[in-house]
Amino acid sequence: MATKKVALACSVCGSRNYTITANPSRTKRLEVNKFCKHCGQYTLHQETK
């Protein structure tokens, strides 16, 4: 059985830079400060569905 993946999208430019494994016990969307290679700075990345 394959693991389900979700993407982390930059809140500034909207590019989906990172993928993580989905956690069904997480009720809210994950928000993490990550480096966006398109913006060139650390921005807030949010989990997409």
Rank of each mutant, 00 (worst) to 15 (best):
M1L: 09
A2Y: 11
T3K: 15
T3Y: 11
T3G: 13
T3V: 08
T3R: 14
T3M: 12
T3I: 05
T3C: 10
T3E: 13
K4C: 02
K4L: 09
K4T: 12
K4Q: 10
K4V: 14
K5Y: 14
K5T: 15
K5I: 13
K5S: 11
K5E: 09
V6M: 02
V6E: 00
V6Q: 02
V6T: 09
A7Q: 09
L8Q: 03
L8N: 02
L8W: 02
L8T: 06
L8E: 01
L8F: 10
A9V: 13
C10K: 01
C10F: 05
C10D: 03
C10M: 05
C10P: 05
V12H: 04
V12W: 02
C13A: 02
C13D: 05
C13W: 05
G14Y: 01
G14S: 08
G14Q: 06
S15E: 07
S15P: 01
S15W: 05
R16I: 08
R16C: 13
R16T: 11
N17E: 07
N17S: 09
N17W: 03
N17L: 10
N17D: 10
Y18M: 07
Y18C: 05
T19D: 02
T19S: 10
I20N: 00
I20A: 03
I20Y: 04
T21M: 02
T21I: 09
A22R: 03
A22N: 03
N23R: 08
N23P: 03
N23Q: 08
P24E: 03
P24W: 04
P24C: 06
P24S: 08
S25M: 09
S25G: 06
S25Q: 06
S25Y: 07
R26M: 15
R26K: 13
R26W: 12
R26T: 15
K28T: 14
K28H: 10
K28L: 14
K28Q: 12
K28D: 12
K28W: 07
R29I: 07
R29C: 04
R29L: 12
L30K: 06
L30S: 05
E31D: 05
V32P: 00
V32Y: 08
V32A: 08
N33W: 09
N33G: 08
N33V: 11
N33L: 11
K34T: 11
K34V: 12
F35T: 06
F35L: 10
C36R: 00
K37Y: 13
K37S: 12
K37L: 11
H38S: 13
H38F: 14
C39Q: 00
G40S: 01
G40F: 03
G40V: 04
G40L: 01
Q41F: 06
Q41W: 03
Q41G: 03
Y42K: 07
Y42V: 05
Y42I: 05
Y42L: 03
T43R: 12
T43L: 12
L44G: 01
H45C: 10
H45F: 15
H45L: 09
H45I: 06
Q46D: 04
Q46S: 14
Q46C: 13
E47P: 04
E47C: 08
E47I: 03
E47D: 01
E47W: 02
T48I: 15
T48N: 08
T48V: 15
K49G: 15
